[in-house]
Nucleic acid binder design. Structure first.
Lengths: 144, 144
DNA sequence: TTGCTTGCAAAGGATTTGCAACATG
DNA sequence: CATGTTGCAAATCCTTTGCAAGCAA
């Protein structure tokens, strides 16, 4: 719906490939890289090209349906943005487990920090890294 | 000193290239990419290889002398870590101007958010993006 | 029909790696 | 001398782009 409107408004075309990729993307709950999404989509349509997936992901960004996530490992991941409000990420250094978190007080303070330097905050990224309970337990047990 | 100790402890060698790159790196106040550092170092020793700069930067990370910064533009930048305590970054979306900021209350809240999910926070990254005063002025004036 | 889209393969940019020559401890 | 280290070039990884053929509006 939103995507179709976006396409129409920008004189872009509604193709089966775009529909397929969008559907696959929206079905997922996890963050996903272009390559992972390509693997999924390829199962349904082996003729689809990798470049198309990259291109659609860019479109989804412009249509405000996706958001980039960068954990700093050289791969860009994407997550839904529509009906999925802003949040930050808490990532386990041990097992990679990832939780979405938000703290309204932090959000407010971020605004103020920016303002105190004359900036008008537009957005932010915050990644909290640590060890989850499981990994702490394993660690204190030592390597077997 | 620290670097030399690190090298000794790990059976690594103290070479003129490593010294040169380290000195150049420590002299800088700004964040710098491997390629920029290579350009600088090359002026003093044109025979130096790009790969060596990348390799030394990795070493400095392991020796806890450098820290990676990732603004998400595909280039990894580095900054001193030694005698340069933790801070976050406030970046202008307009001109790219960058300020280092810290807010002790935010830092404390981050710890608590992590703990509330059973995580022990080890570190974090926070990037605040916005528009600085100059860019807001230019923007409201409109493009000429 | 017009011109946006596609898949393919080649190109790109940043970083890493294999290797033979070289230098350090 | 044994090994770590270097510069070079080739290789890698992820992503983008050029292009001719194909397809939506």
């Amino acid at each position: 719906m939103i995507f179709q409107k976006y396409l129409a408004k920008h004189d872009l075309r509604d193709t089966p490939q775009r529909e397929l990729i969008l559907d696959a993307f929206l079905t997922l709950e996890e963050h996903i890289s272009a390559e992972q999404l390509y693997d999924i989509v390829k199962r349904q349509d082996p003729s689809i090209g990798q470049a198309t997936v990259y291109r659609v992901l860019k479109l989804l960004m412009e249509a405000e349906l996706a958001r980039e996530i960068d954990f700093g490992d050289g791969v860009i991941r994407y997550e839904h943005k529509y009906n999925h409000p802003h949040h930050d990420h808490l990532v386990c250094r041990g097992c990679g487990k990832m939780l979405e978190v938000v703290d309204p007080v932090i959000e407010e303070l971020q605004k103020r920090v920016a303002e105190s330097h004359g900036f008008k905050l537009t957005d932010h990224e915050m990644y909290l890294y640590g060890l989850c309970e499981d990994c702490r337990r394993k660690k204190s047990a030592g390597p077997q």
